[in-house]
Simulated assay, not measured.
Amino acid sequence: MNRTTRFLAACLIATLPAAFLGAQTAKQDMKDAGHETKQAAKDTGSGIKKGTTKSAHAVGEKTEEGWDATKKGTKKAYQKTKSGTKKAVNKVDGDPNTK
């Protein structure tokens, strides 16, 4: 064997074990796929939880704002009704100061 042939043979022999070490069995591939699927499901669940929590918080805030606006509007309507009723009663009673 000449020098070049020996060099190429040595390179080939050196790379063969690395090629076999990197190979996986079908069983190992399935196991890895299972782990990756499990992790993807966990990540999806975490994202859904985060989004749901954020949405629930926003709904709670908007509900509180709606409650406050309704309360304010009800008080205003009550005051207007009370004032209008007083004016009507005074008109019926003949109070000259009623406009």
Rank of each mutant, 00 (worst) to 15 (best):
Gly45His: 03
Leu16Ile: 10
Gly51Gln: 07
His35Trp: 14
Leu16Asn: 04
Gly47Pro: 01
Ala33Trp: 07
Leu21Thr: 09
Gly66Ile: 01
Glu65Ala: 04
Thr52Lys: 07
Gly60Ile: 00
Ile13Pro: 02
Ala69Asn: 08
Gly22Val: 12
Ala23Tyr: 03
Ala33Cys: 06
Ala69Trp: 02
Val59Ile: 13
Thr53Val: 04
Lys38Val: 09
Ala19Pro: 00
Asp29Ser: 14
Lys42Asp: 10
Glu64His: 12
Lys38Arg: 13
Thr15Met: 14
Leu21Ser: 07
Ala26Glu: 13
Lys27Glu: 13
Lys50Ile: 09
Thr52Glu: 09
Leu21Ala: 10
Lys31Cys: 08
Phe20Cys: 12
Asp43Tyr: 02
Thr15Val: 14
Ala18Ile: 03
Lys54Gln: 12
Phe20Arg: 08
Lys54Thr: 12
Thr52Met: 08
Lys42Ile: 10
Trp67Asn: 15
Ala19Lys: 06
Thr25Ile: 09
Lys38Glu: 14
Gln28Ser: 11
Lys42Thr: 11
Gln28Ala: 11
Ser55Gly: 14
Glu61Trp: 09
His35Gln: 14
Glu36Cys: 13
Asp68Asn: 11
Val59Gly: 03
Ala33Val: 06
Ala26Leu: 10
Asp43Thr: 02
Ala69Cys: 05
Gly22Pro: 04
Trp67His: 15
Gly22Lys: 13
Ala41Asn: 07
Lys42Ala: 10
Ala56Gly: 03
Gly47Cys: 05
Lys50Trp: 10
Thr15Ile: 13
Lys49Tyr: 11
Lys62Asn: 03
Ser46Phe: 15
Lys38Asp: 15
Thr63Phe: 00
Met30Ser: 10
Lys38Thr: 09
Gly34Glu: 10
Thr52Cys: 04
Val59Tyr: 10
Gly60Trp: 00
Leu21Arg: 05
Ile48Ser: 08
Ala56Arg: 04
Gly47Asn: 11
His35Asp: 15
Gly34Ser: 14
Gln39Tyr: 06
Gly34Ile: 12
Ala58Leu: 05
Gly45Lys: 02
Ala33Met: 11
Ala56Ser: 07
Ala58Gln: 07
Lys27Gly: 04
Thr53Asp: 10
Lys50Pro: 01
Thr70Trp: 13
Gln39Met: 09
Pro17Val: 03
Lys27Arg: 12
Gly34Arg: 13
Ala14Asn: 03
Ala26His: 06
Ser46Asp: 15
Ala23Pro: 00
Glu61Arg: 12
Ala23Ser: 06
Thr53Phe: 03
Cys11Met: 15
Thr37Pro: 00
Ala26Gln: 13
Glu61Phe: 09
Ala41Met: 08
Thr44Gly: 02
Gly22Ile: 12
Leu12Ile: 05
Thr15Asp: 06
Glu61Tyr: 11
Lys62Trp: 01
Thr37Phe: 08
Phe20Leu: 14
Lys54Met: 06
Cys11Glu: 12
Asp43His: 02
Thr15Glu: 08
Lys49Val: 07
Leu21Asn: 07
Gly60Ala: 03
Glu65Tyr: 00
Ala18Arg: 01
Lys54Leu: 05
Gly34Trp: 07
Ala40His: 07
Cys11His: 11
Asp43Gln: 05
Lys42Glu: 13
Gly66Met: 01
Ala23Asn: 03
Val59His: 09
Gly66Asp: 02
Ala40Phe: 05
Gln28Cys: 04
Ala40Pro: 01
Thr15His: 08
Phe20Lys: 10
Gln28Lys: 11
Lys50Val: 11
Ala33Asn: 07
Gly66Glu: 01
Lys31Val: 13
Thr25Gly: 06
Ala14Tyr: 02
Thr70Glu: 15
Ile48Trp: 04
